[in-house]
Structure formats: structure tokens, C-alpha cells
Design a protein around this nucleic acid. Structure first.
Lengths: 153, 153
DNA sequence: TTAGGTGCAAATCTTTTGCAGAAAG
DNA sequence: CTTTCTGCAAAAGATTTGCACCTAA
């Protein structure tokens, strides 16, 4: 984990930015919650445990900075808040989301199904793909079960 | 065009909703701007030409309603505003977006490349897909050209 | 007639910004 | 030292909501 922080520190410094204690605490929170898709508010609450004096604005500024540096990915699931994911060491964010419109649950598929599509895109549209985002909306298995039992009542 | 409005009217009425003049004006604006991805504010300004007394809140409520009825699709490109697209008569919204991170331009691919993936999803994950959203982020042909000329300077 | 709709203004919620003081290199 | 950061509070936007008055069916 220290190795990843050092790497981020170097990235920041190469652009003239500093790795302050607040920024380090923020990065640690992201590292410790890599599986989640934290909102700025989520990150703020978690960082407060490590650095109680931190302000929400600093968290926003840090996330924005990390996003510009491509250290985190800023995402939007349409629920009114931006969510942030640390990028993996491999440079791309190869997973897709299944979002249930009934219960709001979100699960992930870790496969990347889009490799061939991206190649086609670069060829046919001359578009240099840096990242993609594939979300499916629908009804999860649990809610399908619930729906059919509701129908009976 | 009248046919599509009548159809939407029926859909609304089947759920106990009314097609008021404000709602009709809103739908007409969406029909007349099918190629764009209008924000609520955009729609509001356009609807005002037809129905000057309309309020922004009504536009939001109408778009929300139409979204729930799957008449429009609510989208989010990460620029802080929700955008709304009328769905085509075919029940799914089969196109993908290419978003340039340099200039912010957005273009569309009208093909649907995901049919087989959706089938696999229903089988492997028992997830009933109603819609999907596929966005690619990267650098458009124009900005690639600009970048390489900038490098020279 | 009456449930559903509307406009307005106020309220909410997320995110951004101005500023004076603090700290990293 | 000097440039970058930070916390705070205020501001800015987008969207939602309460309410008293309308209106489509």
C-alpha cells in the first residue's frame, strides 16, 4: 500500500503538487475502500476518522485533482452524486455495472467484454479510446422473484 | 408526429395521468429536437416559446414523469446536468456515445453492439436487462490532430 | 365533480469559490 | 521565502417540494 502512495506522491510532485497529510488521508481511504464507489460525502466521513479537522471542500478539491491526474475515476450513476474509484494499476477500468431499477442495488462484472469493440472504434471512427463505461439497467434476480410473488397477491 | 403524441397520450392515460397543454408542449419540443440531448433548462426555454406561462418546476415534473414511463431516457454525461432523450419507437435505446475529454464534443454511433452481451447477462447473472448505456471516453480525431500540432510548437 | 396538475417561491442538496491564515519544499 | 493548500462560510447551480389555485376527463 505504501508503494502505491509513493507512486501517487511522485505523480503529484511531477506536476508541482504536494502530497499533504489531508491528501494522503484521502488516498488511504480510497485504497482501503477500493471495492466501493464512494461519493465525496462518503470519503469525507471516512477521512474524518483519520484527520478530523479536514473540510469537505478539501475532499472535493483533492478528488478533483486526483481525477485530473487519472488516479481516480469520477463516475456518475445518475443518482445525483459523483462517485470516485481508484484506478487499478493496469491503466483501464475494465468492469461493467448492473443497476437494478427496482431496489437500486448495483453489482459489477469484472470481465471486460469490450476489447474488440474498442479496436473497431479506433479504426472506423478514429476515436482514441481512453476509457469506457458500460452500465446495464434492469431488474435483478432478487427483485424479479419479489415481483412474481407480488403478482400473486 | 401527431401519431406519436397520441400514443404518448394513451400511455399517460393508461396510468391515470393527463396530457395537459404544458405536457404536450414539452413533448413537442422533445420531438422537434430529437437529435439533441436537451437539459431541463434547454427544454424549459424552448417550451416557453410555445407556452410562455410554463414554470421550470413543471418541466422537471414532466420530464421525470416521462422518464418513469420510459418515454424519455434520462442521461448524465457528468457535466452536472441531466439530459433527456425521447426514446425511439423501437423500445430500446440502441446507440452509444463517444465523448471527447479534450473538447467535450459528443457523437453517436447508432449501431447496437450489445445484443449478444445482453443475452449472456440474462443467462449468467439472471439480470433482466431493460436498457443499457455505453459511453466511450477518449480523444476525438480533431483533437488528436490538434495535439500533435501542439507538440511541435 | 374531483383527482391530478400548475406556477411560484422557498427549500434542499451537491459542488464550487473567495479569502485569510497555514504549511510544504 | 514563496507557492500551494486548507478550513470556513458563503455562493452557485440543479432539482425538488409545499401550497393554494386550476383544469382535464
Amino acid at each position: 500500500m505504501q508503494a502505491r502512495i509513493d507512486k501517487i506522491k511522485q505523480q503529484l510532485q511531477s506536476q508541482g503538487y504536494k502530497l499533504t497529510s489531508q491528501r494522503e488521508a484521502t488516498v488511504r481511504v480510497l485504497l482501503e475502500n477500493e471495492e466501493d464507489h464512494l461519493s465525496a460525502e462518503d470519503v469525507f466521513m471516512l477521512v474524518k476518522d483519520k484527520a478530523p479537522e479536514i473540510g469537505l471542500a478539501t475532499v472535493y478539491r483533492t478528488l478533483e485533482l486526483l481525477s485530473e491526474m487519472h488516479v481516480v475515476e469520477k463516475m456518475n450513476f445518475g443518482d445525483g452524486v459523483a462517485r470516485y474509484d481508484l484506478r487499478t494499476d493496469s491503466n483501464k477500468h475494465h468492469h461493467h455495472h448492473l443497476i437494478c431499477i427496482k431496489c437500486g442495488s448495483m453489482s459489477e462484472i469484472m470481465d471486460d467484454w469490450l476489447g474488440p469493440l474498442e479496436e473497431r472504434l479506433e479504426k472506423e471512427y478514429r476515436f482514441n479510446v481512453l476509457d469506457h463505461r458500460l452500465d446495464f439497467q434492469g431488474i435483478c434476480a432478487k427483485c424479479q422473484a419479489k415481483e412474481s410473488s407480488d403478482d400473486k397477491s
